[in-house]
Amino acid sequence: MLELRLVQGSLLKKVLEAIKDLVNEANFDCSSTGFSLQAMDSSHVALVALMLRSEGFEHYRCDRTISIGMNLTNMAKMLKCAGNDDIITIKADDGSDTVTFMFESPSQDKISDFEMKLMEIDSEHLGIPDTEYQSSIKMPSQEFLRICKDLSSIGDTVMISVTKDGVKFTTSGDIGTANIVCRQNTSVDEPENATEIKMQEPVSLTFALRYLNSFTKATPLANIVTLSMSADLPIVVEYKIGDMGYVRYYLAPKIEE
């Protein structure tokens, strides 16, 4: 028996919008720790890891560790029917081939339930080592969104270079080239407007903008995004979900031939 009640239902709606374009179907793993997911895109170049810790739910019952396979497009369709202020409850009985999403309006005057068919999904789990990254950048998530969107109108890939002077985003295409440099700036009114660069070693890696743009679908979840990079390793793009968990995206770098 699985029963998870999330008072801030809009979080789940935003999570689905953040991952459904990258991954079409995925297994959600439910354990006493929390509700999580790890899935790769169809080309196995990008991976999304979601964690919603059990403490963040108002009610969290998961009698045994289970994995429930869902089509994310269909799940997103159902969650779109929930109001932004609604409380969302996810329910699944043992051995059932369906999951139920229940939406309650804040004043309890409207209660809806949507039942969705589950799927059997063969998924490959990757072991992601805990790594100390050579560079990490914390910046406003809106700023990162803007940079990815702007650069993708010029080129297909972006080189992200971190030095002590700042982080530089470079692209080039048929019409020309573009460089955007962001410097560390922590003297701002609000911490969410700060750009913070931590660098042990300078790093320069190239990535496909198409994927980075897809990751920015998570922008409504967090004001700050963290980019972590080490030479010859996938970048990690992390959006924290309050103090409840995170959505992390991993993207393999492009290699010079």
């Binding site: 196995h44 170049v45 990757l126 072991g127 992601i128 996938p234 991993y250 393999a252 290699i255 010079e256």
Partner: peptide, 14 residues
């Protein structure tokens, strides 16, 4: 010219 590797080469399967 750049080429795109998959994640499998970086992270352990299973």
């Amino acid at each position: 010219e750049t080429s795109q590797n998959g994640l499998g080469g970086f992270f352990k399967r299973g």
